[in-house]
């Protein structure tokens, strides 16, 4: 049951450069998948949308709705590609781990990239860094600095802490949900495996017993995966709007 990860340490002799090859592989696979699907879906664009174009437009409308909820659409328009790419990348990642898990030897190769804290924290850090970047770019350095001491200078330490907690909670929320899902799924499947290890009879019994909860949990995990996509994009846009909106928060 305990899988290891295909880790390569100290690449090029650099002491801090470690790779989890499974992560690298999955990131590449998910990115390629998202790219291929999106480009395929946005070919042959028509004035009257049909089929896949409708799906793409629905996705755009969905993310546009999220952005419009949090900020002025004129400002938020430029974050649409970011939100859409985040949404699709995370959705594909979440579903990838739900569909199957592949291990070669003891190493776990196929899983959700979002079930790895390193990667979700990378995404959340990127988002928070982007909010700072756009805050300065759109509203000016003065306004950006002012947000830290408004409404009262007393808020300064809290505001600074908030930036870090935002990063952590944004990344760890996604990771936690996906990771917990995968643990429970592997426990349920492990139940069957242990049953078969004891004997054929108990194997069949445990398979029957675990089949229904496994299916139910997979369905629920799909739901969680979709919800987490929404939450992640929503919070991204909320943090963004805190930095770029005209009103002081």
């Amino acid at each position: 049951m305990d899988h290891t990860a295909p880790i390569v340490e100290d690449v090029f002799g650099i002491s801090w450069l470690d790779f989890n090859l499974a992560n690298v592989f999955m990131i590449a696979v998910i990115s390629t998948l998202v790219f291929i699907v999106c480009v395929w879906a946005s070919r042959n664009l028509q004035m009257k949308p049909t089929g896949k174009q409708n799906v793409m437009e629905w996705a755009i409308e969905f993310v546009r709705g999220i952005i419009s909820d949090t900020m002025d659409w004129k400002t938020g328009k430029q974050f649409l590609p970011l939100g859409l790419t985040l949404a699709l990348y995370i959705l594909f990642s979440n579903v990838a781990g739900l569909v199957t898990v592949v291990t070669i030897g003891d190493d776990l190769w196929w899983k959700s990239p979002t079930a790895d804290a390193t990667l979700t924290l990378t995404l959340s850090t990127m988002v928070v860094v982007l909010t700072h970047y756009y805050g300065i770019k759109l509203r000016g350095t003065k306004h950006y600095l002012k947000t830290y001491v408004s409404p009262v200078p007393l808020m300064l330490p809290f505001k600074i802490i908030e930036e870090f907690t935002n990063t952590l909670t944004l990344g760890l929320r996604l990771f936690g949900n996906l990771y917990a899902g995968e643990i429970l799924l592997s426990l349920l499947i492990g139940l069957t495996a242990t049953g078969f290890a004891t004997g054929i009879g108990s194997g069949i019994l445990s398979f029957v017993l675990s089949a229904v909860p496994t299916l139910a949990w997979m369905g629920f995990k799909l739901f969680i995966g979709a919800i987490q996509v929404y939450v992640f994009v929503m919070l991204t846009m909320v943090y963004m709007s805190h930095k770029v909106s005209v009103e002081d928060h």
Binding site: N20, I27, L108, D116
Partner: peptide, 19 residues
């Protein structure tokens, strides 16, 4: 820590690749 999914360790390489 690995139970179905690898966790832990702040691998800079992964972060760079992801980014």
């Amino acid at each position: 820590m690995s139970v179905g999914a690898a966790v832990g360790g702040l691998r800079v390489g992964d972060m760079l690749v992801q980014l």
